[in-house]
Nucleic acid binder design. Sequence first.
DNA 1: TCAAAAGTGTTAACCATACACCCATGC
DNA 2: GCATGGGTGTATGGTTAACACTTTTGA
Lengths: 229, 229
Amino acid sequence: MSYTYKYPHPAVTVDAVVFGFDEADLKLLLVRRRIDPFKGEWALPGGFVRLNENLEEAIRRELLEETGITELYLEQLYTFGEPDRDPRERVISVAYYALVNLSLYPVAAASDATEVAWFPVAELPEVAFDHERIVETGLARLKAKVRYEPIGFELLPRKFTLGDLQRLYETVLEQPLDKRNFRKKILGTNLLQALKEYQQDVAHRAAQYYQFNRERYEQLRKRGFNFEL
Amino acid sequence: MSYTYKYPHPAVTVDAVVFGFDEADLKLLLVRRRIDPFKGEWALPGGFVRLNENLEEAIRRELLEETGITELYLEQLYTFGEPDRDPRERVISVAYYALVNLSLYPVAAASDATEVAWFPVAELPEVAFDHERIVETGLARLKAKVRYEPIGFELLPRKFTLGDLQRLYETVLEQPLDKRNFRKKILGTNLLQALKEYQQDVAHRAAQYYQFNRERYEQLRKRGFNFEL
DNA sequence: TCAAAAGTGTTAACCATACACCCATGC
DNA sequence: GCATGGGTGTATGGTTAACACTTTTGA
């Protein structure tokens, strides 16, 4: 079977820069390529767009097929279209960036056998195609956006401590934050709901859990409120 | 001549949301379609990407061919890929937004004969395809970005008065600004260079001209300075 | 002399920053 | 009892916001 057009058409793929966060690190999800080119090397999850699905559907399908991930925050990042970015033919890639709650998904360490793995962003392996550039674009976007949209919460479990949240911000922004000022500011937004739950079995005073109040954020946003850290 | 592929390929176009500004209005550049579908209707300038050019080259080529514009600030906006957005075949459009110094280009008013025209964004005609949605996305981006990047200057002539600049900001942000505070803030950034030139033949006190100091902005930005209005 | 926009300074409220100590818990 | 992170308040300086009058020019 083949497809014929009057004018040349590029191929179109979607690729995702998927971030996760655990206590220590910001992590990136990579998959091992099963076909040439770059067979056996690490690359961003993604694949060709089908004619009957839109771009977001395409990346969701690919993420499900390649990694099993369904629950994530997804946003279009940038479209990469240098003529030679794929050795096979002209391929234009619409990149998405995604934030995942790592605790929902198994954290397989990379090995020769694993097909999917999380890598600390500070220790990324070589990646196929121009995916390094796509990752950099995703990192820059995450860093810029975390300051003025409450997307940090997408990287954390439903309930978390203020310490967790602060570590996340410090990691993403690559700078230390003053604990007292951070707490004042975050609690001052009224976007966090304190739970009547506390850490268990920790070797220090147990921290209180909080959860992000998404409805409240939507309400405030409609009235012109702007999150800003 | 025809082109055959093993798998179906979408067509890929680039489209541009081009903004201009004159004393009174924020304006959008539209072109009249010369072929079906939507022949004779207004649409964003743009067209199919060729296999040997990257996306930015493609939109620059199209803008030159369709409108003659070469001097502009250009930035990728968003990629639109609903399966049915073009009745002919699957077409994915990479949209750019562009800012143009209107004084450099003739301001033809729209008529049955004109092929290219500037429309006040408050009075846009019907546009082809899903271009209305693309325009809205561009407007939202402009409005958001003007606050934290000095892109307003791209819409003005090389030399301008502080009044011009304030009117521009008030128009884009759709809100009045306090004149004294606006001047303090803008001059406080040190990004404007006062010229020893003044308005001529105006029926009020002549305003001083300024120009944007781009090198200075680049210097400051590298040192971590952030423009913010 | 009027209309129209240019240009200018001060004050008060608010917000961001810097900073140090006590608390609860497990080992 | 000590190590670990949780939790809290205040003072200072800087920034923003609100506000009114004088200047210059052409008509």
